[in-house]
Measured scan of single mutants.
Amino acid sequence: NITNLCPFDEVFNATRFASVYAWNRKRISNCVADYSVLYNFAPFFAFKCYGVSPTKLNDLCFTNVYADSFVIRGNEVSQIAPGQTGNIADYNYKLPDDFTGCVIAWNSNKLDSKVGGNYNYLYRLFRKSNLKPFERDISTEIYQAGNKPCNGVAGFNCYFPLRSYGFRPTYGVGHQPYRVVVLSFELLHAPATVCGPKKST
């Protein structure tokens, strides 16, 4: 009989979020998941679920829940969905086509923008091939755009693969920082350890 609540607040209220190319993952297990707390949290810009209804989450049990978190621009949030393409979905964070879970995003301009620009948040701009679902690539190898080998030196046709967002408070909404948490639900042939409040007695 599990009684402790799942530590969703640790994920959602973290002081610093990860850059999207180096997205953070927390495994959540052996706890009671009260999703209504999240669902009623006012400032969400997006709360979209795939393969599961957000209002039914509290009735369900899962083997594991993974909480992935990172920061992207407002106009990139739409790429955090199954079957998407674009710089983020291709080179930074890719969801599987059969994704079961929820994508939760909110504007973090007050936290993550600075006058003069916040350059701490990076994304991958160049990559030889697209990421596989949930693949994480933190390499900083110089990207070779031409035929000539770069030998690890940036220059003509040789690019550092990461780019900084440089968030400023005055940017338009599409270019403002958004914090994103992706909850993915794993249902294995194993005992369920993460259940909603109704199922955990």
Rank of each mutant, 00 (worst) to 15 (best):
F70T: 01
D59F: 06
Y159F: 13
A14K: 09
H189L: 09
I2K: 13
L5T: 12
T55M: 12
F45G: 15
G174T: 12
D137C: 02
D9K: 11
N107L: 03
P177G: 02
P197W: 14
K48V: 06
I80D: 03
Q79H: 04
L131A: 03
E76Y: 00
F167Q: 04
L188F: 11
K48T: 10
R16N: 14
Y178W: 09
R25W: 02
I88H: 01
V65P: 01
I80Q: 02
V71L: 05
L57I: 07
D9E: 14
P133A: 08
R163P: 04
F8P: 03
P82F: 00
I142P: 13
N75F: 08
P43E: 08
R136T: 05
K114D: 13
N13M: 03
C49L: 00
C61I: 09
K94I: 00
I88C: 01
C158E: 07
R25S: 03
V65E: 01
R27F: 07
A89T: 06
C49V: 00
D112Q: 00
D137E: 04
K132G: 09
S53M: 09
L125E: 15
F70C: 00
Y171D: 15
D9S: 12
F17N: 06
K48F: 03
S164E: 10
N147Y: 11
N58S: 10
S200H: 13
Y178H: 15
F41S: 10
Y165S: 04
A14N: 07
G74F: 03
F156N: 14
L188S: 15
W106F: 11
F99P: 00
R136S: 06
V173T: 14
V20L: 02
S164L: 05
S200T: 13
N109S: 11
A22I: 04
F47R: 01
F70Q: 02
N87Q: 12
L57A: 06
A18V: 05
P133H: 05
V173C: 08
T201S: 14
N30E: 07
V181Q: 00
S29F: 08
N40E: 12
A154R: 14
Y178V: 15
E141Q: 12
E135R: 04
P197C: 15
G174I: 09
N118W: 04
Y123E: 06
A105I: 07
K56R: 13
L187N: 15
L122A: 15
S200G: 14
S36T: 12
Y119M: 14
D112H: 01
R127P: 03
L111R: 10
L57T: 04
P177I: 02
F17H: 03
N118V: 06
F126P: 07
L60W: 05
A154M: 13
N64Q: 11
V11C: 03
S78C: 07
I104G: 00
D68L: 01
P96I: 00
I88L: 04
G117E: 09
P82R: 01
R124K: 04
I72N: 01
T15M: 02
N118Q: 11
A192Q: 12
N13I: 00
Y21W: 08
E76D: 09
D98E: 09
V32K: 09
C102Q: 00
N24I: 04
S53C: 07
G116Y: 09
N157H: 11
F41C: 08
S200E: 13
N151V: 10
S36Q: 10
K148E: 15
I28Y: 15
A67E: 01
V153D: 13
R124G: 04
Q79K: 05
V71S: 01
L57W: 08
K199R: 14
K114I: 10
Y39R: 15
V194C: 10
Q79I: 01
N92F: 01
K128Y: 08
Y178N: 05
K132P: 06
D97Q: 09
C49E: 00
K198Q: 12
V32F: 08
Y66W: 11
Y21S: 04
Y91H: 08
A81T: 04
Y171E: 15
K198D: 13
T15D: 09
R25E: 03
Q79G: 03
Y171C: 12
Y121D: 04
Q84Y: 03
F47E: 02
F160L: 12
G155R: 09
V37M: 14
D68Y: 04
S108Q: 03
S200F: 12
N1W: 04
L183R: 00
R73E: 10
V52F: 10
T15F: 00
A22H: 09
T140Q: 10
K198Y: 12
K198P: 13
N75W: 05
K110S: 12
K26Q: 09
I2C: 13
P149V: 11
F8M: 06
Y35A: 08
G86Y: 01
N4Y: 08
F44Y: 10
F12M: 11
V181I: 05
L188I: 12
N75S: 13
D137I: 01
V77N: 03
K94D: 01
N40S: 12
I138R: 09
L95M: 07
I72F: 01
Y39W: 14
Q144W: 05
W106T: 04
P177S: 05
P54G: 07
A89I: 02
L95F: 01
P54S: 10
G51K: 09
A190H: 12
A190L: 11
D59K: 10
D97M: 10
N92M: 01
G146R: 07
S36M: 07
D59C: 05
F70S: 03
E76K: 01
T100N: 08
S184H: 15
N75P: 05
P191I: 05
A154G: 13
L111K: 11
C61L: 08
I28S: 01
F156M: 14
P177Q: 02
Y21M: 05
K48S: 07
D59Q: 13
V71K: 01
L95T: 01
G166Y: 08
A46N: 11
